[in-house]
Write a protein that binds this DNA or RNA. Structure first.
Length: 271
DNA sequence: AGTGCGGCCTGTCCGC
DNA sequence: TGCGGACAGGCCGCAC
């Protein structure tokens, strides 16, 4: 389940192989992803040059001389770089083939990922134009988050996972950030004091930044490997630890469902 | 406009 | 040991 750090690690891993290279074609074997890969995508990208490899939220953006490829890893997607084409395996849904022979191969068992094409500015695209600030940018600060939450009486956990509020905070890191900030996941978003919001902003930034830093060290070489940055060995204090002792106070962690998602917290440390 | 939920998909795990 | 079913989860798109 790629969270923002995994997506950023992927971006950094594939960028050196793609930048300034010419796309020869895209070979699609399975087009039925989250949305169908457009049938004419190959005509669009053929012979274009990659001018930028960027990220917005959990979307990867490949800028070319004619438009942008918008990619998403969904739940189980991964890219790897091959020096030359080798026989695809199960779930290897498409290859982006460069004119120098390098192949960017996409694998995604659950097919929740996406590959789309747009000729408008990607930030104007329907999938991106509603997105809130990047959690690691200067736009995401205490004042911003506090203001954004004032109209929301939904639980804080649901709110920070809403990409209109801030992008890239998935279930794992939402649990961890709330534990770190000492905030109960069910607390109404508009009933949290500014100092506590400040702690939450700091927690979100710290956790994501640390995971990205570890991704950078974990991932030596995107070429040849399975392309999966895998799970960072980052210590998870609550996620996946239901009924185990709190790392801070030793009382057993509780698990509830919120919006059909696993939510783990310490009822002593989080209020 | 904010909120809640269905649906997409398949590997993994659990209970019988 | 085999098998069916629940579960996991990002996030859009729709209903309320």
């Amino acid at each position: 389940m790629p969270e923002l750090p995994e997506v950023e690690t992927t971006r950094r891993g594939i960028e050196p192989f793609l930048l300034h290279q010419t796309i020869q074609c895209i070979q699609v074997r399975e087009s039925r992803l989250r949305w169908p890969i457009p049938k004419d995508i190959n005509n669009k990208v053929k012979n274009t040059q990659v001018t930028a490899v960027t990220r917005r939220g959990k979307y990867l953006l490949l800028g070319t001389t004619k438009g942008h490829l918008i990619a998403h890893l969904g739940m189980s997607g991964s890219y790897r770089v091959l020096e030359k084409a080798i026989p695809p395996e199960k779930h290897d849904h498409f290859d982006l083939i460069l004119s120098n022979g390098t192949v960017l191969r996409y694998r995604d068992p659950r097919k929740f990922g996406a590959l789309l094409w747009t000729e408008e500015q990607p930030e104007s695209h329907k999938l991106l134009n509603h997105l809130g600030p990047e959690p690691l940018s200067d736009d995401f600060d205490t004042n911003y988050l506090y203001q954004a939450l004032q109209k929301r009486k939904a639980p804080i956990k649901v709110s920070i996972m809403d990409s209109k509020v801030v992008v890239g905070v998935g279930n794992i890191y939402a649990n961890e950030a709330l534990f770190s900030a000492g905030i109960h996941p069910k607390r109404a978003a508009n009933r949290i004091s500014k100092p506590r919001i400040e702690a939450l902003v700091a927690a979100i930034r710290a956790i994501l930044a640390s995971a990205i830093a570890q991704g950078g060290t974990t991932l030596r070489d995107f070429s040849g490997s399975d392309g999966n940055p895998g799970y960072f060995k980052q210590t998870l204090h609550v996620y996946g630890r239901a009924d185990l002792p709190c790392t801070q106070c030793s009382s057993p962690l509780k698990e509830i469902r919120m919006g059909n998602r696993s939510t783990v917290y310490c009822s002593e440390c989080q209020r």
